[in-house]
Write a protein that binds this DNA or RNA. Structure first.
Lengths: 203, 203
DNA sequence: TTAGATAGTAATTGATTACTATCTTTGGAA
DNA sequence: TTCCAAAGATAGTAATCAATTACTATCTAA
């Protein structure tokens, strides 16, 4: 039984709040998550949240930071452990899919932020994460190309865009069929297979 | 010069309203569009909207209907004019991209609806459009497979998922770099090229 | 010509939301 | 054990939004 103490040190409360947001975002449109809903989810009154965050926007910034740190932790580890660039690319893909499976709210939050019209810091952070991610992918693609693993005819930018799209494809599928998020890993293999065939040098 | 009459027949006003929503959605998060903003955009007071729609939800339903009708009009025509299933697949892809380019609000509306937690009719409509679209793609893939244009090793479901994802990939890219929506057609060709390489039979 | 129908206006309402001011409790250091 | 700063509770406020209402302008058909 997890002991949910009534009072918590500020640092712990902040991370619990971020987890609450991620948790709720798995089932609800991130933009519709109210401070009241977050507070209720963690057994605290709504006003208490503002002891730890200046405002809602700064809470979203904290969430985006969490995403950036934890996504790249997983993804970079996967890339580093792979023997070849091509293997790294696939490892990154599967690590990302697994990250999304365990944190279904993350892609919804990312996409929701990118949709926003207001140029908030959280939105810029989301864009920054995606660009940084794209740079990682580009590096791997270029390395694989030099090793002769990728067909020279393949455009790097297109390959990068489709890589991200192939992840997003599975996310959309899981939005359509709710419980597909659990089976996302199996589907991912099939989808990545097509992607790999699309970029690799013909044998 | 478009004559914006003060009084309009109800039918015209309804379609003008839908256009206004599509227009605003190109620049703003669909869920954040207020009835006041819609009304202002079409030079009418906020209350006037409710002369033509029971409520905001029914306006969204009308928008979804517009999307369904107009998307499939373009897509089906493209498919029918193509000589082979494989050519049809590419034609559908390019038609879809062109539809998105001329109506940038559409993908935002679609995925905004799919993100919603409330099981509204508009959300079900969005899911219906995507499923119907997927069925079209599946039919073409199966036909291409029978003609020996697609590698038998390729999983149909995966190919369908990635097809939709490859479109979504370009949409995300345009969210990231705002004015990329204009160049989406050029990028589309490169992305589709990889997709085609991924599914077609090796020569 | 005029009466009914249709479309639009202006003002208001109740609900919801992020945020805040003030009071209360708790837990750990001295 | 005592004390006090940090964490939370309580009870608000101002702003925003969809929706409604009473009223007016305009079109159309008999």
């Amino acid at each position: 039984m997890t002991m949910t103490r009534k009072k918590m040190p500020a640092k712990m409360r902040r991370s619990v709040t971020i987890e609450a947001v991620l948790d709720i975002a798995a089932r609800q449109n991130p933009r519709d998550i109210t401070t009241a809903a977050i507070a209720q989810h963690m057994n605290v009154t709504q006003g208490a949240l503002f002891r730890h965050f200046d405002n809602k926007e700064s809470l979203w910034q904290a969430v985006m930071e969490w995403i950036e740190v934890n996504l790249f932790k997983r993804v970079d580890q996967a890339a580093n452990e792979a023997p070849t660039p091509m293997a790294a690319l696939q490892a990154v893909y599967m690590a990302h899919i697994d990250f999304v499976r365990t944190h279904p709210g993350v892609p919804r939050i990312m996409f929701g932020e990118l949709q926003r019209s207001e140029n908030t810091k959280a939105k810029r952070q989301a864009g920054g994460v995606l660009k940084k991610y794209g740079a990682r992918v580009t590096t791997l693609i270029d390395a694989a190309r030099e090793k002769g693993e990728i067909d020279p005819a393949v455009d790097t930018a297109s390959a990068r865009i489709l890589f991200i799209g192939s992840i997003q494809a599975l996310v959309i599928q899981s939005l359509l069929v709710a419980k597909d998020i659990e089976n996302i890993t199996e589907k991912a293999a099939g989808v990545y297979d097509i992607y790999r065939r699309g970029i690799e040098v013909k044998r």
